[in-house]
Simulated scan of single mutants.
Amino acid sequence: MTVQVDNTNPLPLGIRGDRLTGRRILVVGASSGIGAAAVRRFAEEGASVVAMARREDRLEALCKEVTAAGGNASYVTGDVTSEESVAAGVDTVVQRLGGLDGAFNVAGVGGAGKLHEMETADFDRVVAVNLRGTFLAMKYQIKAMLESGGGAIVNTSSIGGLVAAPALPSYGATKMAVNSLTKSAAVGYAGDNIRVNAIAPAATLSEMLERWLTTDEAKRNMAAQTPLNFIALPDDMARVALFLLSDESRWITGTVLPVDGGASAT
């Protein structure tokens, strides 16, 4: 089986579907990797998408690309570690699009190293982005969806949130906590027509993984750890998020869905 060693979008851009037609969707953490792939994919399926992240130059280039392909995408800068920034970002989306129907929360950072050697400040940084950032995003997204009559949220967990992650203790801890937030919100807001799910990716050629795996050999070794024996592309995750945001998953909430090439089953 061929091992995937690049992160090229496997399908050309161009409006093809209608699974999100009329939906107003926010992607948090959209400047690269899974988030950027999601902006492309959601726009291709008819959504009006707002991309949010810190790096304005990347957001601007992404939205120009999507718009040139016939999609509807704009951006707002924001930092998930700042409550004021998140609140202002969601408010901008609501003002711009007239409401919020869906959100995909992708922003995250890694935290490699042995637990006893980890600097407390580094641990706090991972918690601030991965856990507190997801909490803040959900807090203001849910408020907006309550006013819009409902919606769907997809959070980004990890295989490290499903099994032990001894090399990534802070990362794994925050992703397990994201799972709990996801399930709690799903049950708490089901009566308000808000569905909340999460995806749990394994090895995906995002910007974070590219920094860790600098050679094809390293990527092959990583791929060999999954039964399907290849590393996913960001678009593979975007498609699963698309499913969870669409009406095709209307009977699914409170789920943390492994998207891991079978890794968590071994």
Rank of each mutant, 00 (worst) to 15 (best):
D79E: 09
G161A: 01
G108R: 03
L131C: 03
N221C: 09
K139M: 07
G78S: 13
Y140A: 03
L146W: 03
N155K: 08
L233A: 13
A185T: 05
F230S: 08
V256K: 02
D57H: 11
R58N: 15
S74L: 01
R132W: 01
I25Q: 08
T2D: 11
T266K: 14
T215C: 05
L168R: 07
K143D: 12
A173G: 13
T214R: 14
L131Q: 08
T174P: 12
D57S: 13
L233W: 04
L181T: 08
N229K: 15
E56G: 10
V76C: 12
E217D: 15
M222Q: 14
F230I: 01
A200V: 03
N7V: 00
V240I: 14
A173M: 15
L181D: 07
E217N: 07
G102V: 04
R16K: 12
A200G: 01
Y189E: 02
V93F: 07
T204L: 13
D247L: 06
A190K: 00
L181N: 09
A103K: 04
A241D: 04
N193Q: 13
N221A: 15
L20M: 15
I142K: 02
A165L: 00
N72C: 11
V90W: 05
T174A: 09
G22K: 05
R58C: 05
L242V: 03
N9C: 09
K64Y: 02
R250W: 12
A112D: 10
K175M: 00
R125S: 14
A203K: 00
Q4E: 03
A200I: 05
G133M: 10
G22Y: 11
L233S: 06
V27E: 11
A36Q: 11
L245R: 04
D101T: 07
Q95K: 15
A30T: 03
R239F: 12
S264Y: 05
D235C: 01
D91S: 14
L228A: 08
R211V: 07
D122N: 12
M52Q: 10
S48P: 02
G89M: 12
V94S: 00
N9Q: 05
L115C: 06
N193Y: 06
A152D: 08
